[in-house]
Amino acid sequence: MPTESRLGAGIRLAVTTFTTLPVRAGRIDRAVAGVAMTLAPAVGALLGALLGGVLLLTATLAPAPVAAVVTVGVGALLTRGLHLDGLADTVDALGSYRRGAAALEIMKKPDVGPFGVVALVVVLLLQAAVLAELAGRSRPAALAAVVAATAAGRLGVGLACRRGVPAARPDGLGALVAGTVPPVALVVGTAAVALLAVPAVAGRPWQGPLAVLAALTVAVGLLRHVVRRLGGVTGDVLGATVEIVTTLAYLGLVLSG
């Protein structure tokens, strides 16, 4: 199939995987999945631009904390809450201290355990607190911060799907995308997201890229732990990576900012 057709299918898959936009999916295979996971940061940047606009607009009508909570809610709505669900399931599995198939079975359960609930509460509170802080900054810096952090979260998916990282199950999203992202794509994606983060902290052009790199470094360590415990990555692990990297990037952007 021509490269353009694979690229188009990859774009559609990236959009339908990471947002609720009504885009009809086309061809789906590992080649297309690799394109989609490679383009995930770009989709994240577009989503971040939308969320940044929601934050800044709402902040003109309501107090900063209210604007922050609304933005977090809109973000969950635009992603169907799938990443948050993945975070809860992954933390529940890891918190059980079980390994392999036993841990994966916990992730399949529809209920959310205490570890998952705590993880959701902490992540959502941290994101809301950071967004409230950003709402008080200059509009360009606030917008850049939201765009960069949201893009960084999706770049974390590329890290989880890099070559050499196996899937935990023989089926599902993890099996489709595991090992599909080449190293060069990660290098280019990291450079692009770091560049987006440069204007996120006024007077400290180094802090934005450093925050992105630090969040991704932590994600690499966490992914290694997950692979040891579960045997590989799953769709839930990808969702958890999105939320963890996004939150850590946000924190790095407001520390001493």
Rank of each mutant, 00 (worst) to 15 (best):
R163E: 15
V184E: 13
R139M: 10
V147Q: 01
G189D: 08
L124R: 05
A135S: 03
A168N: 02
V121F: 14
V187P: 07
A168G: 04
A128Y: 06
A194E: 15
D111S: 15
L155H: 14
G172L: 06
L134R: 11
L131A: 00
T190Q: 07
V112M: 12
A142V: 00
G164Y: 04
P183M: 09
G156E: 03
R139C: 01
T180M: 11
L196H: 02
A145P: 01
A145F: 01
P114N: 07
P114K: 10
A149L: 02
V165T: 15
A129H: 02
L155E: 12
P140M: 02
G158R: 09
F115E: 05
A185P: 03
L155G: 11
L120T: 07
V121P: 10
P140K: 00
A168W: 09
A148L: 08
D171M: 12
G189C: 10
G136R: 10
V187M: 14
A185L: 06
V122T: 13
V177G: 06
R154P: 11
L134M: 04
D171K: 12
P140N: 06
A168M: 05
P170R: 12
V187Q: 12
P170D: 14
V112L: 12
V177K: 08
V121T: 12
L134Y: 00
A185V: 03
Q127G: 12
L124Y: 08
V121W: 14
L195K: 02
V193S: 03
G179N: 06
G179R: 03
R162G: 08
A167T: 06
G153E: 03
G156Y: 00
L176A: 08
V123Q: 13
V118H: 07
A135Y: 01
T150I: 01
A148F: 05
R163W: 14
R162I: 14
A178G: 03
A135R: 01
L159E: 15
A132Y: 02
L143K: 01
A178K: 03
V184T: 14
P166L: 07
D111P: 03
A142N: 01
V117Q: 06
R163I: 14
A191R: 11
A132T: 03
P114R: 10
G113C: 08
